[in-house]
Write a protein that binds this DNA or RNA. Structure first.
Lengths: 158, 158
DNA sequence: CTGCTTGCAAAGTGTTTGCAGGCCC
DNA sequence: GGGCCTGCAAACACTTTGCAAGCAG
């Protein structure tokens, strides 16, 4: 399944390795729990909820605790390595913000009927971002909360 | 304080009265709890959380229960009389969607630093709404979730 | 060693649900 | 009087926190 030659993380080039380096750089400790969280996030293109991260991290670092995952996500978030998005009023989803914090960012649309989450490039929000900036001085974080509405399927279905 | 001549709700013209009429029209029951919720929402220009609505409704209809307020808000929401907005990952805020369901709607910006909530006319989101509609067939509900970012004050402060 | 991190358990929000009784129509 | 609504309590989902032990540096 994995593209790594061995069971270990690649020594260079991998996003996890980059993240771990940044941890060391900031004098944050490199722990099994944090590695497991980073590898989990690196291993999926999906948006993972904290609970899903717990499950998957569990298989990398058995015994890792839910609370620890939350704390790791908070720390990694403060360092800018991980971002989260609030989906409606429910659980937040997390993703790795690497290689560059501003690259490949996407916003989320969620359907209020079927709950589907649709990724859209942040570009779509660029005009709005500019407007809010110009008119109100508000610096939008376009990927920090999902936009809610009805998806195409549910619109035609009802 | 109030602009009503007596302690009772005005027989006509009041938003609460309009809402109650619509309830009857839909064969939904007009109960003390629902009235209290509507009057509470009518009485403030603020965005109220469910908990704040409970407190204030309590003084109109003593003994009204939290769960009942949630159910009333759900029912009123389904009828289009009340809308709610998810503010970040925290409690939703509710407002009366009257007189007309599509009038005076506003979106919410929330500052991720100072938590302030800023109202903006939905017009600002019109271009985005049009883009999402055209490109993806997604029907945005611009006031259903707050947009997160940094407010002008916090931007300059840091 | 020093103290940041973890595991555990428990508490804290915000919201929903099952049930029996009560009120609206 | 029939059935929708309510009050109550308990459960629920997500997240946070206090504390003692553990591991990173």
């Amino acid at each position: 399944m994995g593209s790594e030659p061995s069971g270990r993380v690649a020594a260079s080039g991998g996003r996890v390795a980059v993240a771990l380096d940044l941890l060391r750089e900031r004098n944050e400790r490199v722990t099994r729990a944090r590695q497991a969280v980073l590898e989990t996030l690196d291993g999926t293109a999906e948006h993972l909820t904290a609970d899903e991260i717990v499950s998957q991290a569990e298989s990398i670092a058995p015994g890792v605790h839910r609370a620890t995952v939350y704390r790791a996500l908070a720390t990694l978030g403060e360092l800018g390595l991980v971002t989260h998005t609030h989906i409606g009023g429910a659980a937040a989803v997390y993703h790795l913000a690497l290689p560059a914090p501003a690259t490949a960012r996407h916003a989320h649309l969620q359907c209020t009927r079927c709950q589907a989450v649709i990724d859209v490039p942040v570009d779509i929000l660029a005009p709005l971002t500019a407007t809010l900036d110009r008119d109100l001085g508000f610096q939008l974080e376009p990927d920090h909360a999902a936009l809610l509405g009805l998806c195409a399927d549910c619109r035609s279905a009802r």
